[in-house]
Design a protein around this nucleic acid. Structure first.
Length: 314
DNA sequence: AATCATAACAACCGCAAAGAT
DNA sequence: TATCTTTGCGGTTGTTATGAT
């Protein structure tokens, strides 16, 4: 006999939360702060298990959460980070302000995985069948192999692969569905907490520990890695070779990993440690991923937007 | 208009790590 | 140190909405 589920008690409600339940939960957290979830159902009268309450708060009711409509920038971040970290959704979420791990995970599973698969198919049907190739490896290999493709997800037209084409472009114009109508009501509930988040020391502490860092304006290419000049000329690669030089393993392996490259004052300590830890784990078995790491950890503030637009494969 | 298929995403489950006692 | 409790995480499922036939 296995372990009984946490919510199998008689009278424990499951399924979608109602606005009324949300209000009860938010009101309670507004007063007591998040945490001690075990006592929440008891103290609020909610017929929910503690886990459900925590999840509802974390994924929906918590202030500052952005729902739906992932920007191309965010898509790029997710793809890069997934390639770098794997399915560490919590770690990935820590780099995306206002997004929850659940949201990112769902978006990856329902959107990005398909897009990448489609892109893989367009470039190399054989690679597309290989389930263990990460997006990063795939992209790297593709460009190392000097294969190019034009791919427009928006029109669902995949023009495979003119091997003589000079430019690679993949316009993943996201086609996110509109947010559920109920989402807007949770936004309203979240707004109720804004004043509380500003005024309560307890809430402030919570906010700092949970809210992700606004890294977009603070990281970019490290000093050692010069951004392509075409970036300054409008955010496009001038040639396939230039693009390839950014993405190929050969080039990346020339960039030595150095913990000191993490030393941006702007980067959250935990994020640094996460990446350092991940890096150590991978370093023995895999080629360096220094490019992406430097891109994530570097100091060229304000260039990230441009960087994300440069490799338009994503 | 009805039915079926697919997409999107909210929520649950079980495991593991961290923290408390 | 050992045990118990709490929390966090990732995989998976269930429900609803939307589109196609």
């Amino acid at each position: 006999m296995g372990r009984p589920p946490c919510c199998d008690k008689v009278g424990i409600k499951k399924g979608p939360w109602t606005p009324e339940e949300d209000i009860v939960l938010v009101s309670y957290i507004q007063e007591h702060g998040p945490g001690n979830w075990r006592s929440v159902p008891t103290n609020t009268g909610l017929l929910r298990c503690s886990k459900s309450c925590r999840l509802r708060w974390t994924n929906y009711l918590r202030p500052g959460i952005k729902r739906g409509n992932f920007t191309p920038h965010e898509e790029g971040m997710i793809i890069h980070l997934q390639a770098l970290l794997g399915n560490k959704w919590a770690a990935i979420a820590s780099y995306l302000p206002q997004r929850t791990d659940n949201d990112i995970k769902n978006y990856w599973n329902t959107h990005l995985k398909k897009k990448i698969k489609k892109f893989q198919s367009a470039l190399d049907p054989k690679m597309a069948t290989s389930s263990d190739s990460s997006a990063y490896q795939f992209v790297s290999k593709s460009f190392s192999d000097r294969k190019t493709a034009s791919f427009d997800i928006n029109t669902s037209s995949t023009t495979a692969t003119d091997h003589h084409a000079s430019n690679a472009s993949l316009n993943l114009n996201h086609s996110c569905s509109t947010s559920a109508s109920y989402a807007s009501s949770t936004e309203n509930i979240s707004r109720l907490l804004e004043g509380w988040m500003r005024s309560s020391p307890k809430a402030e502490k919570f906010h700092q520990s949970n809210n992700t860092l606004e890294i977009f304006g603070t990281v970019g290419m490290s000093k050692g890695n010069t951004a392509p000049k075409s970036e300054q000329e409008g955010g496009q690669f001038g040639s396939n070779e230039e693009f390839e030089s950014i993405l190929s393993f050969d080039n990346m392996s020339n960039i030595a990993w150095d913990k000191s490259s993490c030393d941006s004052d702007h980067l959250h300590h935990r994020q640094k440690e996460n990446l350092v830890h991940e890096r150590k784990e991978r370093s023995e078995n895999e080629p360096p991923l220094s490019f992406i790491e430097n891109w994530l950890l570097g100091e060229n503030g304000g260039q990230v937007e441009e960087m994300m637009e440069l490799p338009q494969i994503f």
